[in-house]
Simulated assay, not measured.
Amino acid sequence: MNIIHERNKIERHIESLKASEEFNGSVLVAAHGDIILAKGYGLASVELGAANQRETVYRIGSVSKPITAAAILTLVQQGRLRITDSVTTYLPVYPQWSKITIEHLLTHRSGIPNLVMLADFPQFSLQPHTLDELMAPFSALPLNFEPGTQFEYTNSGYILLGKVIEAISGMNYAEYVQQHVFLSAGMEHTRLDDSRTIVPNCASGYEYDSSGRMIRASYIDMSNVHAAGGFLSTIDDLYRLDRALRHHRLFDHHLLQSMNAQHFQPYGYGWFHTSFPVLFHHGGINGFTSTFIRHLEQDFTVIALSNRVTPNTAALGLRLMEMLIEG
């Protein structure tokens, strides 16, 4: 691979999208362990005219799910959890979930209704909630289907995984992930967002109204997404996660194979894999969109984080991965 040629080709593509206001954010592209490009485009704050940088911090939405899945697998590595265990092994106060396994939660095959799709969630999400309060609305509902029989993407399952992590470890979720994932991976700028703490270099989020006019993002208290979508991160920190996974710094080769394997379509342990060996996850949360794409065999990685709600972030990531594969 001619890195200079690839960098020029990639930069031209991103710059064309920036010029037409189709992308605004930060992008990292790497091949075989070498970073080809890592930089910001557009504005982190429209009001202040502050530019996005390589170091800019973004809400990553559901790109948080691979982090939660990795945290679960560290518990497997420690011998404190088995993927085939029932949720009630660790949370006996929820007997209605006795047929749901940890694997069902990881792969969105639990049947638990998706909290964010409930009719009152927009109003509910404006106020802070404890983890137990967050689980209350969906723990009272019947399952949508028999566990293990269907795929239905749901934030509720990953919120529940956060609760399992707390029950087993005796730590709160954020502390456990910090100690057992972020420290091992060298992720110094990733944290669970609480909507209140001032975070240096953090971008402001934007959306578009029905007329296409850019507006400030609608409010959400970040306690309402928790382990399903609550992290702030940077392109470099997510790349550090990629390297930590590839080099078995979080758990051993056997567990990494389990995480990456095509257990079910279209979702494994924290990753979509509809075009295996390419794993990916997209994210979207008020004001922000993200994508994290990894080619397992070629060791290609593409990360794009944006402080605007737009499908262009995912489309950009997929196109950049195609460009790497095409060479």
Rank of each mutant, 00 (worst) to 15 (best):
F145R: 09
S125E: 15
P113E: 10
L115V: 14
D120K: 03
L134I: 02
S110L: 10
L131D: 11
L141R: 11
H108G: 03
H129L: 05
P137L: 04
E133F: 05
A119I: 06
Q150S: 13
F124H: 02
L131S: 01
F145V: 06
G111W: 06
P137T: 02
L143M: 11
I112H: 03
T107V: 06
F151A: 02
P122M: 11
G111N: 08
L134S: 02
P147L: 03
S110I: 05
L143I: 04
I112M: 12
P137V: 00
T107W: 06
Q123M: 14
F138E: 07
F124K: 05
F124Y: 15
L131Q: 13
F145C: 05
F138I: 13
S125N: 14
P113Q: 09
P142E: 12
R109P: 01
S125C: 12
L141N: 07
P113M: 05
M117C: 07
L106G: 03
P122Q: 07
L126H: 13
F145S: 03
L115I: 13
H108A: 01
T107F: 00
F124S: 03
L141M: 15
D132E: 14
P113K: 04
V116N: 10
Q150W: 07
L106K: 08
H129E: 11
N144A: 02
R109F: 01
E133S: 04
P142Y: 11
G111Y: 03
P122W: 13
G148P: 12
P113G: 06
T149M: 07
L106H: 00
M117T: 14
A119L: 12
M117E: 15
S125Y: 04
E146F: 02
Q150P: 00
T149D: 10
I112C: 11
Q123N: 15
P142D: 12
Q127S: 12
N144S: 10
P147Y: 09
N114Q: 09
L106T: 03
F151T: 04
S139M: 15
T107D: 03
A140E: 13
H129F: 08
G111T: 10
G148N: 13
G148A: 11
S110F: 03
P113D: 09
M117P: 00
R109Q: 14
Q127V: 05
L131G: 02
F138W: 07
F138L: 01
P128H: 06
N144P: 01
F121S: 06
D132V: 00
T149I: 09
P137M: 06
A119H: 14
T107G: 04
G111V: 11
E146V: 15
R109M: 13
Q127T: 09
A140Y: 02
L143W: 08
L115G: 01
G111D: 13
F145A: 07
A136P: 02
A119T: 14
L141K: 12
L143Y: 08
S110C: 06
L115Y: 11
L126K: 15
S110K: 09
F124W: 15
G148F: 08
M117H: 14
P147R: 06
P142L: 04
M117R: 15
M117N: 14
Q123Y: 09
P113N: 12
H129Q: 11
I112K: 10
P122I: 00
F124R: 05
R109G: 14
T149N: 08
Q150M: 12
P113Y: 04
R109K: 09
P128Q: 05
Q150K: 15
T149W: 08
L118I: 13
M135T: 06
H129Y: 09
